[in-house]
Design a binder for these strands. Structure first.
Lengths: 225, 225
DNA sequence: TTTAATTCTTTAGAATTTCTTTAGAATCAG
DNA sequence: CTGATTCTAAAGAAATTCTAAAGAATTAAA
């Protein structure tokens, strides 16, 4: 779960990044409109949290850009004033939720959770494909009620595949979602290969099926019922 | 955990009952003031969630009745309007928390969790898992009527695990809940390790079971019946 | 068609990170 | 002051992650 915080108050950024990192999110931040724009164009996020009042522009204008760059991305607006027009404008532009400053990080967390549920759990508590069940709370994968132990990277990888079910995901985008933008482009993707194969093997050994297909030269595609 | 929802909107009732049932709560509902009054007098609930605006009376008047029938019961008020006086009046009458409509069930869940935690710390109800009994009043743990001495930190830790049963809790979040806000992120978590191991050892030595599983790189998970 | 280049699979082990455990120093409460 | 608790530090263990390398498969080029 990769999240971008667009916010100019350093203290708030720090608080949010600290908190949500411990919650298992992959956190990045942008403190200006320009930087946010750049990051949004370059990378892919699952959720973007946008403060409206930025020093060099209104966060409102970022909303369409996010939607354009990826339909999947959830958008939460944060604003200092509790203005109904602001709220409506934001939601109209395509934001998924709205929060007024000041707020508790716990509340933002609850909203992100709700958004997460709507986006990928679609109202369910578990993610289910075939005889597999993923419980995000206990971070476990099980096959016919028997737990399959996954490492952190394998678990993240699996979730990324689930979100992009039936779609071809490229190796660079996998790397970006699992390592963040600290990931050096010049690095080779050997690590991705290894984790991918380990996950593939575990899924295959327990079910006998091949869930992850290789699309030569393009990436991988995860398919399941 | 038995919960009563006093709410007249059928859709909302359904949503809440659905959600909280999957969260392991035992859910009941009352859609009128009269029905709620009746249920409160007759049965015992751990938590009552009251919508102020009921068709046949103000939910506000239910608050003293709940307190009278059982001091233990937690009360959360829900109201359509974000009125400060409403909020203050409710809290004055003995409500534990206040929530404005519309809200996300996730958010209510977070509040119930917090409430549960608070109640458990000072309430006199016993917490039971397997052959263990925790008496929050005397802050003691016993196994088959034999007391197990726990230090303060071990006790807090155990309670935090119980509240988050079956969930993966990260080390930072453990630290935050036990040492509070002034816990420095830059501190290393050695102390957490130590207390955790001590608790783990005590539980294991008395019961022979392993209650606390390490989820490598993510945190720990407590499981019990 | 054959060859070369690229991309992918697989394995093994090195490097790193995270966890466990112990012991003793510091701190706190009675 | 004394004893219990809490914290720090450090060493070793364990698990994960990464690197590297060799071979297989696929595509592109000759």
């Amino acid at each position: 779960m990769k999240v971008l915080f667009v916010e100019d108050e350093p203290v708030l950024i720090e608080e949010m990044v600290d908190y949500f990192s411990t919650q298992g999110y992959l956190c990045e931040s942008a403190s200006t409109y320009a930087r946010a724009e750049e990051k949004i164009e370059t990378y892919n996020y699952d959720i973007v949290i946008i403060d409206i009042g930025l020093p060099d522009g209104s966060g409102m204008n970022l909303i369409p850009r996010v939607s354009r760059s990826s339909e999947e991305t959830g958008i939460v607006i944060v604003s200092a004033k509790n203005s109904l027009t602001d709220k409506l404008e934001g939601l109209n532009l395509g934001a998924d939720d709205y929060l007024t400053k000041p707020f508790y990080v716990e509340e933002l967390n609850a909203r992100l959770h709700a958004l997460y549920r709507r986006k990928m759990l679609k109202g369910n508590r578990h993610i289910i494909f075939d005889d597999f069940v993923i419980d995000p709370l206990s971070k476990t994968l099980s096959f016919k009620n028997k737990e399959i132990s996954l490492t952190k990277k394998e678990y993240q990888l699996l979730l990324y595949f689930i979100v992009n079910k039936e779609r071809v995901v490229s190796k660079p985008s996998i790397a970006e979602h699992i390592w963040g933008d600290y990931f050096d482009q010049s690095d080779n993707f050997d690590a991705v290969y290894v984790h991918l194969m380990n996950l593939r093997k575990k899924l295959n050994q327990t079910s006998g099926k091949d869930y992850i297909k290789t699309v030569y030269g393009m990436g991988y595609r995860f398919s399941a019922a």
